[in-house]
């Protein structure tokens, strides 16, 4: 574990806590893409298939459980919570994410660490996570005003993988024969997809104005 990876995990955890806070405090999920939340639930379930077979550390197991449980809880709230579900932007959250799932799985069948069920699903979860934010970014563009907590959620969700890129660089420089080509390539694509959001987020922070993504 290095400081970059710890910062990445804590930033990721913070983003999830911010989203839970927004939904709990406002009893609303306006501006939040349920499709992105469902994609993240799929990402965590298929990435952590080794949850019960490979014990890495208490921290690792704990965080995996937190990520799976929180993503499922958020999807449950947005689908079934009697109050929260009413604020879901159903008519704006229309990204056809089936193609993202299909393309990620097809790529995982071609490019993986090892041709085994666990490794193909692991690569699938890595590729899917890279594009999972797309429905959320599209929703932000369509729903003009973005509330602070939702903006902060997306910001920290994008920042966490940037910390992981620093972690991979650090490990590549300090550990012999360390490579993470699949996660590294996918992580760069994932972080790049946030580029324009980061730009408009910085502008809104600098001008102390409401975050606004151009349609």
């Amino acid at each position: 574990m290095n400081v970059f990876r710890l910062a990445g995990d804590m930033t990721h955890l913070l983003s999830i806590l911010l989203l839970l806070l927004k939904i709990y405090a406002t009893k609303s999920c306006s501006g939040v893409s349920r499709k992105t939340q469902e994609l993240y639930a799929i990402v965590f379930i298929f990435r952590y298939l080794d949850l019960f077979t490979d014990f890495i550390s208490v921290y690792n197991t704990f965080m995996k459980v937190v990520f799976i449980a929180s993503s499922l809880a958020i999807v449950w709230c947005m689908r079934f919570h009697p109050v929260v579900r009413r604020s879901y932007d159903r008519e704006l959250d229309t990204f056809r994410y089936f193609f993202l799932v299909g393309a990620s799985f097809a790529l995982a069948l071609i490019w993986h660490e090892k041709f085994s069920v666990q490794e193909v699903f692991w690569a699938f979860s890595i590729y899917l996570e890279a594009v999972a934010i797309l429905p959320q970014l599209v929703l932000l563009q369509r729903s003009g005003n973005v509330d602070n907590l939702t903006g902060q959620y997306v910001f920290f969700l994008g920042a966490y993988r940037a910390f992981y890129i620093l972690n991979w660089i650090y490990r590549y420089l300090t550990e012999p024969r360390f490579t993470r080509w699949i996660a590294g390539t996918s992580g760069v694509v994932q972080t790049a997809l946030y580029a324009d959001f980061f730009y408009y987020y910085f502008i809104s922070w600098k001008n102390n104005s409401k975050l606004k993504l151009p349609a």
Binding site: D50, T53, I56, W122, Y164, A183
Partner: peptide, 10 residues
Amino acid sequence: SAEGKYHDEL
């Protein structure tokens, strides 16, 4: 197993 430790990251 050593193999299992491969995915030591989240």
